[in-house]
Design a protein around this nucleic acid. Sequence first.
RNA 1: GGUCGCGUAGCUCAGCUGGAUAGAGCAUCUGCCUUCUAAGCAGACGGUCGAAGGUUCGAAUCCUUCCGCGAUCACCA
Length: 592
Amino acid sequence: MSLQNDLSLKVIAAVKELYQVELPTVEFQPTRKDFEGDITVVVFPMLRYVKGNPVQIGSQIGDYLQEHVDEVAKCNVVQGFLNIVIEDSYYLNFFNGIKQETNYGYVKTLLDGAVMVEYSSPNTNKPLHLGHIRNNLLGYSVAEILKASGKKVYKTQIINDRGIHICKSMLAWQKFGEGETPESTGLKGDHLVGKYYVAFDKAYKEQIAALVASGIDKDQAEKKAPILLEAQEMLRKWEAGDAEVVSLWKKMNAWVYAGFDTTYKNLGVDFDKLYYESDTYLLGRDVVKEGLEKGVFFKKEDGSVWIDLTDEGLDEKIVLRSDGTAVYMTQDIGTAIQRVTDFPDINGMVYTVGNEQDYHFKVLFLILKKLGYTWAEQLYHLSYGMVDLPSGKMKSREGTVVDADDLITNMEETAETISAELGKLEGYSEEEKQQLYRTIGLGALKYYILKVDPKKRILFNPEESVDFQGNTGPFIQYTYARIQSILRKANFDVSTALDMTFSLHEKEKELLKGIQQFPETIQLAAENYSPALIANYTYDLVKEFNSFYQQVSILGEPDETKKQFRVQLSQKVGEVIQSAFRLLGIDVPERM
RNA sequence: GGUCGCGUAGCUCAGCUGGAUAGAGCAUCUGCCUUCUAAGCAGACGGUCGAAGGUUCGAAUCCUUCCGCGAUCACCA
């Protein structure tokens, strides 16, 4: 039973005894720093049930608590706030209870169904950029948070490996590629293919310009440019299973996958199951036909199938073209159902997709509900804001993108420069150093992106490099490294049981309160699908630790029991930092 | 135009289901390395919480209207 629940019952009992009234709930908040106390009862809401002056009511409840609750040491009342000081022994007991616990704060997997988390889902015609990085980090982190909160999780992505955009890079490679391969050029496969996607666009624009110059109007030119017609023809051949086109498609996609694998590995993200759009794009049509019979959908005169969502405040939405082919929505309906077929224990899904698709997912979820799938109640669109540059939106065709691989390299180099200046790594091999620069560089990047609420858009200025001081990944990693340094120097068994009867330093108490909040923070982050809550929690804990570190001597403490306690406390803080950062996909270093 | 999201310090962001004088970091300025890692700590400076109404004992938080920014409203994906 948590302290708050316990106190809540006692307060209710106090009010019952003092005023003969049954309170439904009691409101608590952490005591503000400028007042004495650990937890505060807000008296105002009680005034509805108890007539009287809040200060007087507060003091009377306070007296009662002091008398009847062991953990309550002292009370004071300021205005309508009853501040309660909790006994040190309570916090020490709490610490004793959890200090040996591994993976403190994580809930062991329960058997109440699984959640599938989809993220990444790139196109296979160009390399990943900063926007994809946000997607990958968010999706991966939310998956880890859900796991830690007690859910079984499948990580997945649907790879958009077909369509006209893929044909564009294929065609350009065929025309201008002269047989180039990743091996012959030394380029990463995704970058090589991306190069031809850009080449296509260049040729296309030139043809349009030529056509316009010859007197054709712009709209027509855009539709009639020969290279575009060729790409469309290539798509038709692909859909017809033309051996040559399919073989080229396979070859170039394999290059891209190899490139993506490297980027994913660098980012530290992974997947349990991959779906390919080339396998799923035909799904969903049977479901639409069923839905038509059930009356969920209706058919227009031209044969196209729609759903009417005007009752829900939305519009009509097409689910099947007049020629009977699938649209994006049809596929997504089919894919969702396919997933539940593949993994029957799924009872919820999270789609990590940018907020420009808010409407699409709102409609998709509504359709699945109307089709009567019970799991449709448990679908969540993890919608996130775009990552913009000072120059505006990123456009891969115009070259105004921050490439994912370049960015990662940049961050590592920055970490290297700063580390070299500080020069604390004597004794490290070159390999260890490189590994460390990677840990720090990625830590900076990941934290920078994940600490922001997913809903908000991020303005990323490549000119101003990501910070390494203050509320940053490296700051937190640094604190972890400091703790490890202490543990290396503390040459005694830190698991020793201690006689916990001494009084706590104010900073020690604050740290224990912080540690105590970790489990509930994980639950909150899971409920809100928000890695930012984990990031901000970790930052607060780390700030508190650094303050403690500066004010209180750990290894220099003469009292042996207190010294051991402080080492153990530091160790636990280190463990929490590590666990929290694992949820963000960030590593922590032993030294830095 | 309809719908959705966002608007908090010069900049980047916190602020839980309404609660005490709105909090951090960066930047600027002060102090602190003969003692456990100064990527740190302590402090100063900096805010009509986009605007106006409303609900309430009490509003950055809830409601309404307006303003600004973004997204979306395709037989594209």
